[in-house]
């Protein structure tokens, strides 16, 4: 496992340099004016960023408000009994909800869990798997669709939520198998 991690670390380190180098070298070989072409394409980057700002602000403010309101703790408290039945520590619920909304918030919630529970405890391991296998669905949807002005998401949101729920259930099952 350590070897696997080292291999992937090396690939991660080399991936971007390799991509950029091959694009550049191939273009030079094809006699493309690389500098002018770069600037021509790069100009569009500012427009794209300006376009996504309203969507970014909308989602980030809403999630920040939700976190500050303490709603997560209240909702978690309501579900404690149901969670106990399935062997799921109730500490994990805020993480399960927030991980679809905000990556930095999810990391904060997980750090709290890791600090306030015994090292190597089940809840820490379950939380680690849950966080490691997630992506912030709403943020991705807002930014990607916002950048091209799509208003009707059709089934994209539903698909994202189903995948999130599958990830949560999967994390609970796998954590049970590996760590209980």
């Amino acid at each position: 496992m350590v070897v696997l991690r080292q291999i992937i670390d090396i690939i991660s380190l080399l991936a971007l340099p390799a991509i950029i180098l091959s694009i550049l070298l191939y273009a030079i070989y094809k006699k493309i004016p690389v500098y002018e072409t770069f600037v021509e394409g790069a100009k569009e980057g500012i427009d794209v960023t300006l376009k996504i700002i309203p969507y970014l602000t909308a989602i980030i403010v809403a999630v920040a408000m939700f976190r500050a309101s303490g709603a997560l703790d209240t909702i978690s408290y309501l579900f404690t009994n149901i969670f106990d039945k399935f062997n799921i520590p109730s500490d994990i619920l805020p993480l399960a909800i927030i991980r679809s909304l905000s990556g930095s918030a999810a990391l904060g919630v997980f750090s709290d869990i890791a600090q306030n529970n015994p090292v190597d405890s089940y809840v820490v391991k379950l939380g680690a798997i849950m966080l490691g296998s997630s992506e912030t669905t709403f943020y991705v949807l807002a930014v990607y669709f916002g950048s091209v002005g799509i208003k009707k998401y059709r089934y994209a949101l539903l698909t994202g939520i189903i995948a999130d729920i599958a990830g949560i259930i999967g994390a609970v099952i796998i954590a049970n198998v590996f760590f209980l």
Partner: peptide
Amino acid sequence: MVFWLGIMKIAEKS
């Protein structure tokens, strides 16, 4: 974003 779109323009043209 600015950097990547610049690189991608090169990739596209070549």
